[in-house]
Design a protein around this nucleic acid. Sequence first.
DNA 1: ATCTCAGTTCGAAACGTTTCGACTTCTAGG
DNA 2: CCTAGAAGTCGAAACGTTTCGAACTGAGAT
Lengths: 351, 351
Amino acid sequence: MSAKRRPTMADVASLAGVSLSTVSLTYSGAGPISPDMRARVERAASELGYAGPSPQAQALRSGRSRVVGLVIHERLHFAFRDPFTLRVLDALIGDLGEMGQGVLLLPSPSEDSTEPNLLATASMDAAVLMRVRDHDEPALDILARRELPFAIVEGTAPGAAAITIPDRRATADLIRHLMELGHERIATVTLPRGGRKGTGIYEGELLAGALWTPTRNRLAAFEDAGIEPCVVIESGASMVEEGVAAGHLAFSHPSKPTAVVCQSDLLAGGVVLAARELGLSVPDDVSITGFDGLDLPWLQPLDLTTVPQDGAAKGHLIAQGVKALLDGDEPPVIELPLEIRVGNSTARAPQ
Amino acid sequence: MSAKRRPTMADVASLAGVSLSTVSLTYSGAGPISPDMRARVERAASELGYAGPSPQAQALRSGRSRVVGLVIHERLHFAFRDPFTLRVLDALIGDLGEMGQGVLLLPSPSEDSTEPNLLATASMDAAVLMRVRDHDEPALDILARRELPFAIVEGTAPGAAAITIPDRRATADLIRHLMELGHERIATVTLPRGGRKGTGIYEGELLAGALWTPTRNRLAAFEDAGIEPCVVIESGASMVEEGVAAGHLAFSHPSKPTAVVCQSDLLAGGVVLAARELGLSVPDDVSITGFDGLDLPWLQPLDLTTVPQDGAAKGHLIAQGVKALLDGDEPPVIELPLEIRVGNSTARAPQ
DNA sequence: ATCTCAGTTCGAAACGTTTCGACTTCTAGG
DNA sequence: CCTAGAAGTCGAAACGTTTCGAACTGAGAT
């Protein structure tokens, strides 16, 4: 018995007694094919166990691989831990799937190593960056060199499709809301800044070193509101555990904050837990705000003051952006609207 | 000015004044290339802005696309919501990345539609199924037709690599633990069974219709323990919200269960919240068990009686299985060990 | 001066499609 | 009866690599 090769279109063609092009036309759907011809080809194919055109050959010949790369910055474990991100990706991946595009997970290229990174070598038609550094983003260089079109979520770059949110303005609204309630010592818990890992107090220039755009924008909001945070705590990831640790740091800080602005609801939830552990009442002793508008059932009856985002809408918009890229259209630049929602986690500052 | 084509190896070769094969050898690392030749090629490449070998051509020629497909059954939103799954995927994706393999997210093929599914058409070297139906799994047919090697997590199929857990035995241990504490009316909250969506009471034959292997195994454990659950509640996904809804159903059921066996910690967490809302004390009024051994900070000081799993270890093992598949080795079949861990969410049944 | 043998480099044949223009038929209009 | 055009099918040229065996170069051995 021969080591049987996988059948190809040529095999199907010769068994069906037609030309290779005809078989190709049958599968691709392009070109006019008579019904009986189609039947003949299909019978030959199933007789041979032909599984359809080789994707790799299709990709080479047509120049499209039907794959969109998704750059993941942290360990997946962290990146996908946030239900909001998940909702965005859910919509995005669903839409891309309907467009016949698969989604390839790509670890972010580390700046230090020159080791071959998947972003540089994997076959794809476009890429989506879920976040970007304001400067010195190695992914951008790689994409530029490969001449791959790409979309950026919460960030911008020349030539890229961009989906942004006015998070700076919304955060400033949140801070003003707290100031109107009489708060003067406001702490803030940030998302990762792009540098060191792990939760801790960040000392020094407010913005310097805040590489990730969202972290940076939401910190800059303090300037807009005309107040300085009494302590800035950087979290290692958007997770409840990190929020708990950050809360303990905040509440034991000598500046005695009466309010904590958190850059995500998950962090805010953790800060609430820390407050409770320390016997502080929310919102009577301390006001806490979040971001994203998640539904956290275990926080009930507390209802966070936060900035709700529509994750699905965001995902759909990104997909739309990718579609434009794939069609060779002008890359769209879109900003989603954002308004704060006042819950019962913020109240008048204690005397 | 010409519409400038992307440069190819041939362009690099002719600019460097060497043969195409030499350039290929330079990039692939195979074959002996003298240092000055390498330098010459590299200079020519950077002069042209050559971004490296085309992945699509490489894939066609070498027959390897450096992509592993990951079949997602539900909406990503649900599938990735569970921190445990995330931890598994984190390790898996990391390991595969180190092997130079990207991970392609594939929505599960729906049995009804004959529409072209990505699993059938995407280019990949192997696939991973995170779960499988005991019978009638359309994914298996597609993979067989394509002659793609694949690994199954929590399930088996002839010819496939398999990573399983003795969840049936472990669940039986959990049930026996409850019986020893005097519980006689035990409810159970299952993961999705594979059919209808949404949380609700399931009436009828215990196992019939429980298509997903894990759901089925953990239900079958009741038979092993020699007791029948007083009510079976199927959840729509492994999520806290679903657990809350399930808890309400359980505690308002006429059979008045004194214990609830939940097929995941997230569901158990939700059931605990439901109990609290109804003024029931855990574990004094009702005992609750979980599965997976997650760290749920918001549940403190409650410490679930559960069956801890090592997500990272599982992910590493899957990667190892995939590696074997890619190397053409015998597909490994591995079972991870499992032991129950008694916390303070279970206690003597109330009088 | 000839032979051998590494150490390198080169030619050419795949890999399995898509696609474009050309080539048959066949139908219908004049 | 002739012919324009539509419908269906076919040939052949890419797409950009990898890879195998052959060919070329000196250096040392004879």
